[in-house]
């Protein structure tokens, strides 16, 4: 099939970018979306042009590196599918496809479709962990965890940190991302001990990193390739209220 593409090209962080038109010819429906871009890039290189820069790594939907907004939807039209797992059979001959980077104040564009998502790492650094030393821990079966709690923790922990939730949010909010980590750890007995402090410092970090506020549009969940649930945002809110009531007053 043949496609017309409009791709965001931006040479460097502080240079003005623009949408540039390309055509992708002879695309097979078995290709993944990124393989389609590979073909376009090979064409650009043979013409002596600079290929389109885009982030990608595992190409099997788990590392969370790929990050494109396709026709206005982060990760494109298929539900629960990362860009790398999106295949061209979901498009038809003659389609026009708009490809843009994830856009948010907290995600500065580095080049073309590549953005800096370091802000998400910095949120985790503010408490997205259990403060355990290596070694000196009890036997794994000494703390029993109900199957329900373990499953809830796992549901929350499926987040791949791709940033699609932020990109889809009209407010550029990182609530779903932060909530997934807060909920994962708060569901486990090991994680409850630091829960008060964790939810405060992680939510503070969201603000410091200039993510917006959640207004419950739920766009985040709609584009999340792992389907992380909005009930985790409610869980974060509950944890926050709990920490205000029972935690110490410092923040």
């Amino acid at each position: 099939m043949d496609l017309s593409l409009f791709v965001w090209r931006q040479q460097a962080p502080d240079v003005q970018g623009e949408m540039v038109a390309y055509s992708a010819k002879g695309i097979s429906e078995d290709m993944s979306f990124l393989e389609m871009l590979d073909v376009v890039n090979e064409g650009l290189i043979s013409n002596g042009e600079v290929p389109i820069a885009f982030d990608h790594d595992c190409r099997e939907g788990i590392c969370g590196t790929c990050s494109q907004v396709i026709n206005g939807v982060p990760h494109g039209p298929m539900e629960r599918t990362t860009v790398c797992q999106l295949h061209m059979r979901n498009f038809k001959d003659g389609d026009t496809i708009f490809i843009e980077p994830l856009r948010a104040k907290a995600f500065p564009i580095l080049k073309d479709l590549i953005v800096d998502r370091g802000a998400l790492d910095r949120i985790i650094q503010e408490g997205g962990y259990i403060s355990v030393h290596t070694g000196g821990v009890p036997d794994a079966n000494s703390v029993l965890i109900s199957r329900k709690d373990a499953e809830t923790a796992m549901d929350a922990s499926e987040c791949i940190g791709c940033g699609a939730c932020v990109a889809a949010c009209p407010n550029g909010s990182a609530m779903l991302f932060t909530a997934s980590k807060v909920s994962h750890l708060a569901a486990l007995p090991q994680g409850k001990i630091e829960a008060d402090q964790r939810v405060r410092s992680m939510t503070n970090a969201m603000k410091k990193e200039q993510f917006g506020n959640c207004s419950n549009h739920y766009e985040c969940n709609a584009v999340c390739p792992k389907g992380v649930k909005i009930s985790f945002i409610a869980k974060l809110n509950r944890e926050f209220i709990k920490s205000m009531i029972s935690g110490d007053s410092s923040d």
Binding site: I130, G135, D139, A140, A150, E151, H184, Q190, G191
Partner: peptide, 22 residues
């Protein structure tokens, strides 16, 4: 064996049976 202990302490949500054991 130490690895499993360590990971559980970190909050890795390994699969569990209905009694709560790994």
């Amino acid at each position: 064996n130490n690895i499993i202990d360590q990971c559980v302490a970190q909050g890795v949500p390994f699969a569990r049976d209905y009694a709560g054991y790994l």
